[in-house]
Design a protein around this nucleic acid. Sequence first.
DNA 1: GTGACGCTATGACATTCGTCATCCGGGCCG
DNA 2: CGGCCCGGATGACGAATGTCATAGCGTCAC
Lengths: 198, 198
Amino acid sequence: MIRVLIADDQDLVRGGLAALLGLEPDIEVVAEVARGDEVLASVAACHPDVVLLDIEMPGLSGLEVAERLNGVVRVVIVTTFGRPGYLRRALDAGAAGFVVKDAPAAELAAAVRRVMAGERVVDPKLAVTALTVGASPLTVRECDVLRAADGGASVADIARSLFLTEGTVRNYLSSAIGKTGARNRAEAVSTARSRGWL
Amino acid sequence: MIRVLIADDQDLVRGGLAALLGLEPDIEVVAEVARGDEVLASVAACHPDVVLLDIEMPGLSGLEVAERLNGVVRVVIVTTFGRPGYLRRALDAGAAGFVVKDAPAAELAAAVRRVMAGERVVDPKLAVTALTVGASPLTVRECDVLRAADGGASVADIARSLFLTEGTVRNYLSSAIGKTGARNRAEAVSTARSRGWL
DNA sequence: GTGACGCTATGACATTCGTCATCCGGGCCG
DNA sequence: CGGCCCGGATGACGAATGTCATAGCGTCAC
């Protein structure tokens, strides 16, 4: 019996995944949590063999949780977005598996079993794009500024929220725009996000 | 036995919902489709009593499908985003139910049963915000321009893609910015989107 | 210990954006 | 029939944005 913990902030999805895995004779869902910052306690309490983590959760992101869980249990990232940067960061964080939510439903149980057997499970197509796109060229601050720029904040807003000078913010934006190959701020945010660099 | 069809583009989620409903003794999932434009044919072939529709799907959006299905079968919109505008448009399109994906898993089966019994099922909290936020003040063209502006397109880009003059695009953007209470293009896109006006 | 690089900052400049006034033509409603 | 609003357009103006050169400071690697 493989003991599985599921972390996903959407109740319906989480329940669905649990129901799906519950159909498998050799898999048992021993816990469900809705927030990233609840995972560690639940792992300590329930001793699962495999942990399924969504990336976008309140509290802690699945990637951050994966880092903290590195070595403790096997982690499979289950995410909506097959972004190359996410895959890279997941592997860096010690995740054993990476499954996108538009993969065939049967693949999830298969991934759990293979991870349990000590294998690494990664969508091969995604692995290729992750390699071709490459690692993020953005510095920490450039990321910060791009994140702050999302939603249409002005330079002044960003400067205030990061305690920087407006000129400095403009510089970071300019260099981020250059590195992403974009032609303006919004495009830079959009492409950086789509590659999982934020 | 209530016959249900599920339309959602993410395999895992769709499979999960199917597994979840499959656990109910009085519900039978008779078909699953991944694209909006496959729903109508599948409905004709399988004669479901209730259709669950995700909004964001390739082909046709769940809202468009709901319109075309109005009067044929009972429709429940199942979506990630509890946006007021989505709810409004869903009801306008004749949907009988509106469930957000972070609702408790038990609620889905309950919603299916109540819709089957002829009731309307709507998250009451969401209904309130839908009323307070009000209908979209944006004209069709303003919506088009905002959609085209998403992702960081320049005025020139938008003008080309919509076959308009740059000046006209600027005017629409300006009025959309005014109506959304935003301070620039990106903010306008962001708030319009979050209210389900796009 | 000396580059290389990242973080912060300044100032100047050209370009793009957002706003406003104004215009025309076509529906639609009272 | 006469407003009134929407789609479309022009031109002008000020404000915000993006670019570039330059510079000081800290840290890390070689």
